[in-house]
């Protein structure tokens, strides 16, 4: 349970940590988009070098990144296998019914694998180096123009920050309830799939009940402190654009240029 990387912020004092969440979010998405432009060895090498470079700059222990990859291992594996055996083209090494091991299949499965890894590593980097509330602030700021379309951006941002805020609380509570049920003789790691799923019922029901009652309490606490979704709110943390952010944007422009030059 504690292996879930979401919301695991590792504080630090690096350039990456000091960047504005807005530029970090934009750059992460932008990077993920331009990964799809890479189409040969040179362009992939460039993107991998960049990814490893920013990971190094962030100063976060590599172990945290591997933990981010682990939950998605099967998704990556299955996608890679599909690419490997279902892509046709070039020299065919082996064939069985609809499956074939071909030159193109091998190349494209390697590319898919690298793409996956880079996307996961970059998004993990974002959540590892940015406090959850800063991410929420960043998303809110970036979505702000949509207010013109009368979309409830403030409420949406509040929902995101509340959800992020309660991730650790829910984790702790899940652990506490699991311990209590273990003490009453539940064995979570035991038996077949059905038995394991059934063993989760005594955990999920109290978790839901407690979450609903907490949500009710929270709403009352907010209202009693005068929260009103309609009014414009001032904020305690004001986002500030630094020189680092401008530099980061320039780096991305240079990276894009290099990428376009490297691809064929």
């Amino acid at each position: 349970m504690d292996k879930l990387i979401l919301g695991r912020f590792v504080p630090g004092d690096t350039w990456i940590h000091h960047m504005d969440p807005r530029s970090k979010i934009l750059i992460s998405f932008y990077f993920i988009a331009i990964i799809f432009l890479a189409n040969n060895v040179a362009s992939y090498a460039l993107m991998i070098a960049f990814t490893l470079g920013v990971i190094f700059l962030s100063g976060v222990d590599q172990k945290f990144f591997f933990r981010g990859v682990r939950p998605l291992f099967f998704l990556i594996l299955i996608t890679v296998l599909f690419q490997l055996f279902l892509t046709r083209g070039g020299h065919v090494y082996w064939q069985f019914g609809p499956f074939a091991l071909s030159q193109y299949g091998i190349i494209s499965s390697i590319y898919v694998f690298l793409r996956f890894m880079m996307i996961i590593l970059m998004s993990t980097l974002l959540t590892l180096t940015t406090a959850p509330l800063m991410i929420a602030d960043g998303i809110e700021a970036l979505l702000n123009p949509l207010k013109k379309l009368h979309l409830p951006i403030d409420q949406l941002a509040l929902m995101i920050s509340l959800a992020l805020r309660f991730v650790p609380t829910l984790m702790d509570e899940t652990m506490a309830i699991m311990n209590a049920q273990r003490a009453r003789g539940v064995d979570f790691g035991d038996g077949g799939l059905m038995k394991r799923v059934k063993a989760m019922v005594p955990v999920l029901i109290p978790l839901f009940v407690n979450t609903f009652s907490r949500a009710g309490d929270l709403a009352i606490a907010m209202e009693s402190r005068g929260y009103n979704g309609e009014t414009e709110r001032t904020r305690y943390r004001v986002l500030q654009w630094h020189a680092v952010d401008t530099i980061a944007i320039i780096v991305m422009v240079v990276l894009t240029a290099a990428l376009i030059f490297a691809r064929n």
Partner: peptide
């Protein structure tokens, strides 16, 4: 455990 009422289901 503490707040044992949270284990009822």
């Amino acid at each position: 455990f503490q707040f044992a009422e949270h284990q009822l289901f």
